[in-house]
């Protein structure tokens, strides 16, 4: 997209009519061209005014209740994705050993043997569950215009790795910033320059209640406390 084409698309962009790829491309130009951004302002202002022109109509019967209930349901914490259980580990033959011992010595009571078996079985179960827990890293796929990748989050959210392919180097005076998003809003996780090949960035601990991660193109003078530039990649909402 060149500047003339970008100028042509400003009204549609202001009205939110561009498809995501077009919008992302235009946003990259806008981020690097203050004059183009100035051309956009009157269209954005007109669009904002148009939001005041809706004529409310009576809602269909029960619609308000259905909408409120639907929203509440969808905002419930998501059900954890069931992970397939690991292949059953061969259990140490404590049961046999314990029973053999009980039979051999004939002094232990049946109750004592049962307690021992229960304890040892529970310990094996605990080890299996811990192994499952350790394997539950989270993968958040990221996609954007021509770029793809993922954020791999450790099971305890203590660290994560961002891996991206196809994100070009940030334009002069800009950098990329990766954010987590949740009920707390957007929180910066790291900033980085693009690369022509594969890019791997180690991220610090992430909030457990995050619902999405995304990457923006930020001007270098941005404070970094909230996104100011366009989103170039995002995980699914």
């Amino acid at each position: 997209m060149n500047r003339v084409q970008a100028l042509e698309l400003l009204p549609e962009y202001a009205l939110g009519l561009l498809d995501p790829a077009e919008a992302a491309e235009l946003e990259r130009l806008l981020a690097a061209d203050p004059a183009l951004r100035a051309e956009l302002q009157p269209f954005l202002q007109a669009a904002e005014a148009l939001a005041h022109g809706y004529t409310e109509e009576p809602l269909p019967a029960g619609a308000a209740q259905r909408i409120a209930a639907g929203v509440r349901t969808r905002l419930q914490p998501p059900t954890p994705i069931p992970f397939p259980p690991p292949p059953p580990a061969a259990r140490t033959p404590w049961r046999a050993i314990a029973l053999a011992s009980a039979a051999a010595v004939l002094l232990l009571t049946v109750g004592l043997a049962a307690a021992l078996i229960a304890y040892l079985d529970a310990r094996d179960d605990a080890e299996n569950l811990r192994a499952q827990l350790a394997s539950r890293a989270i993968e958040l796929p990221l996609s954007g215009d021509g770029a793809r990748g993922a954020v791999y989050v450790s099971s305890d959210f203590s660290f994560a790795i961002l891996r991206i392919v196809g994100l070009p180097e940030a334009p002069q005076g800009h950098h990329y910033q990766v954010w987590s998003e949740g009920p707390y809003g957007a929180r910066s996780a790291a900033d980085f320059e693009g690369a022509s090949g594969e890019l791997i960035v180690r991220l610090p601990s992430l909030p457990r209640d995050m619902t999405r991660m995304f990457v923006t193109l930020e001007p270098d003078d941005a404070a970094g406390d909230r996104p100011r530039g366009p989103e170039v990649m995002s995980s699914p909402r």
Binding site: D19, A23, P227, P230
Partner: peptide
Amino acid sequence: AFERSIDDAPAVYAMRD
């Protein structure tokens, strides 16, 4: 027509001065 979602208001609003 599109597999991906269009963005919400925030991206466009971020372009507002």
